[in-house]
Nucleic acid binder design. Structure first.
Lengths: 149, 149
DNA sequence: TCAATCTTAATGCAATTGCATTGAAAACAG
DNA sequence: CTGTTTTCAATGCAATTGCATTAAGATTGA
């Protein structure tokens, strides 16, 4: 016989609701700014940034997937679109013909850079303006617990 | 002449990254559990719950939209699907023919209830297990600042 | 009053995402 | 080795989302 699971506490439910809501609001606002400035979505930015950080601007699709938490098939097609725009290129993975390396192009780096000027400003407006650095640190610490294992 | 906006601080950037990541991870896990149990997505749940809370189980589409932060056209079509499944019904809004009231059906209430048993358990597993009630309260308070105005 | 404006919800069509599967190549087990 | 299993990336097709617009009905203001 199983007990029914106890209800999550009110404070946990409230925190969860606000997490969803905060994410929707802030992402929505940032996406609106990016679009307004004629840029593609945050997903594109995420991929560009990861690649730029990777060794020689290269990562395997799996590595990107893990970093940004997209589905494999979605990433595959996002990379198609980005490759069409000349932002990344697919190159063979030495020693394993199943894999590939995605390399950011100069154009891709330039776009990431230009997007950051809008994105960073938006973060300032929608986050820095609302939280002190200390509070941001507390928030990070709490979210880290949520993320772990 | 405009100064370029100062970079967001490292702690703000870290907090933002973790907010995105935490949301993706937890939503992903919860959605997986719901799907696994044969239930529709969280979006459906959100709408059902809002309606259930509304006066006599009724809200206008606008009210739902504001509560759950969906786009107008997405909500319109989500309500189509939910109506097809017999979870809600559209009824005329007295005194304004543009508007309508969305009313949750008994079937809708039953589904919300059944989904909660899975959803609540998932919240316990993915949030309550990671945060004390006190921490959840702190998290709520910080996220509230982010959400406000 | 009534023309102009605004609000509400729906919809055609394009783009993206989800699901299931595939094909190719590598790793593994006997 | 060689057959089996696993990993990796792509893809056909369905469902959902995004964008732009529309139609209908209220509201406003001269």
């Amino acid at each position: 016989m199983q007990e029914p699971p106890p209800e999550p506490s009110a404070s946990v439910i409230r925190a969860w609701g606000r997490l969803i809501r905060a994410e929707r609001i802030v992402v929505g606002r940032i996406e609106a700014e990016l679009k307004n400035a004629g840029f593609p979505s945050l997903h594109w930015y995420d991929v560009l940034l990861e690649l730029k950080r990777g060794p020689e601007g290269r990562l395997t699709p799996r590595e990107i997937e893990e970093a940004v938490l997209f589905e494999q098939y979605n990433l595959s097609r996002l990379l198609d679109r980005m490759e069409n725009e000349g932002l990344v290129r697919r190159i063979p993975f030495p020693g394993d013909k199943r894999r590939q390396l995605i390399e950011i192009t100069e154009e891709g780096k330039a776009l990431q850079w230009r997007m950051w000027s809008v994105y960073g400003a938006a973060i300032n407006r929608f986050i820095s303006a609302k939280l002190t650095d200390k509070e941001a640190g507390q928030l990070s610490a709490l979210l880290l617990k949520l993320i772990q294992e």
